[in-house]
Write a protein that binds this DNA or RNA. Sequence first.
DNA 1: TTTATATTCAACCATTAGGTTGAATAATAC
DNA 2: GTATTATTCAACCTAATGGTTGAATATAAA
Lengths: 128, 128
Amino acid sequence: MIEKAATARTARLDAIFAALADPTRRAIIERLSRGEARVTEVAEPFPMSLNAVSKHIRVLEASGVVERHRKGRDHILSINTSSLDEVDGWIARTRRYWEGRLDAMEGLLRELKKDDKRGPKDRKHGPR
Amino acid sequence: MIEKAATARTARLDAIFAALADPTRRAIIERLSRGEARVTEVAEPFPMSLNAVSKHIRVLEASGVVERHRKGRDHILSINTSSLDEVDGWIARTRRYWEGRLDAMEGLLRELKKDDKRGPKDRKHGPR
DNA sequence: TTTATATTCAACCATTAGGTTGAATAATAC
DNA sequence: GTATTATTCAACCTAATGGTTGAATATAAA
């Protein structure tokens, strides 16, 4: 059932990209990339309520980019870089197709040039 | 004025990540990664109105991921992979910090082990 | 010149997202 | 125990998003 797997991956990518699309959330990730922290610590620098940051964290957690483990009443947050692999993968794949296509076009141009050299015998109009 | 540059980059990242967060838009990009196409061609496979796809394209264009040049009444779309470099860059940077921190922790653990070997002299309780 | 095609613009609608405040829950500290 | 701290839950508000339909614009074809 490749279809289902593809749909699941699509949904995961949706969630990860959306999670990363908000500047506050990227700042949270950057903060966590320097080490684990509690919710309150993470929230401290932001000019918004703790609740707002708490919501952002939930979004990050749902996307799998951030993980949480409780230590007493503290919730300790860390990032899971492996979730970023999926993003990397999608971009690499897309780029590969596109650049492959450019290469193909370049090859085609080379072919046309060769034709040019062999003589523009019965060509009335140049290639457009 | 580093601040301003940073803010601009932030805004660009917002736009790019948000553009990539929608499955229809990613599908459009995948389509274009196989070669340029007109708006109608791009829209054809999607189960939504042409107008809806047109809007998606505008979002992609605003983010810089897709470019457009007009050829008569046709608008020809292509992707600009260099805009994806910014995403790559952000992820690589984040990952680097995080992994650097893990390495540091590993180093610390090694240190502790060395201490262990040299004898647990006046240590009453083990490290937690 | 009329007609058809490619595309956008404009107005609208329903849902989601990011924020607020106030109350609830759960663990620590006194 | 009672108070304090860390965090979430719930309800609410506003703005943005993703979609619709119908009209406008611009180019191409008859």
